[in-house]
């Protein structure tokens, strides 16, 4: 089942930012969103992840198939790397976290508390979370922030593995990951025409 988006319009704080979006994401494919800061990429990803309602249009094939990773990693600094990952695995009804630990080179850090990790290591742990969810569609918001070149390569490898296994990935990033499967999607042309927010409109 593909992730499909029909005539989607999304709003941030009630103000429309993107509209008329139509795209689909097939299994084994990756879609990279491009656009300047503030163009609404995060809002679009949050809408697709189901965290906020769409202003117009609809999203299909999302919901329970989405694994979402935001700017914040949702790590508990008092828990160890293993505990953090195991928790998310259990929430998603999974057990095994070894593949995720290996995939993001966290095996040596497994028993360190997450609070003692560097920013890049935390980010890797946050991304490793995706691998334990077992969900087919990864929705990633700036996944490579604070990652060094080697870690970016690890991440690209993880995405490639995910796609090869029939998964899909939708991400907003500015870095070229060297993924041949990835298509680029520029959100620039879909900038919403300036209009007042729905909640203001009622009063005009």
């Amino acid at each position: 089942m593909d992730l499909q988006v029909f005539d989607l319009a999304v709003a941030r704080g009630g103000v429309p930012v993107l509209e008329g979006l139509n795209f689909s994401l097939a299994e084994g494919r990756a879609l990279v969103l491009r656009g300047p800061n503030g163009s609404g990429k995060t809002t679009l990803l949050r809408t697709i992840a189901g965290l906020q309602p769409a202003l117009e249009g609809r999203v299909e094939g999302a919901g329970e198939r989405i694994a979402y990773a935001a700017h914040a990693d949702g790590l508990k600094t008092a828990l160890s790397v293993t505990e953090n990952l195991s928790f998310w695995a259990q929430v998603f009804g999974k057990e095994d976290i070894s593949a995720a630990l290996q995939g993001f080179d966290l095996v040596d850090l497994a028993h360190r508390p997450a609070g003692s990790l560097s920013a890049g290591q935390k980010r890797r742990l946050g991304l490793a979370r995706l691998m334990v969810t077992g969900r087919p569609v990864w929705v990633l918001d700036e996944p490579t922030v604070s990652l060094d070149a080697a870690s970016v390569a690890l991440f690209a490898e993880a995405v490639r593995g995910h796609l090869a296994a029939g998964g899909a990935a939708l991400m907003a990033t500015h870095i070229d990951l060297g993924l041949d499967e990835a298509e680029l999607f520029d959100v620039g042309p879909y900038k919403a025409k300036p209009r007042v927010s729905a909640q203001d409109e009622a009063f005009l």
Partner: peptide, 16 residues
């Protein structure tokens, strides 16, 4: 605390 570190968003997208 869950709100600040982003886990609340992630929990909301989890199958709970």
């Amino acid at each position: 605390l869950d709100w600040e570190d982003g886990s609340l968003d992630l929990l909301a997208t989890a199958p709970l």
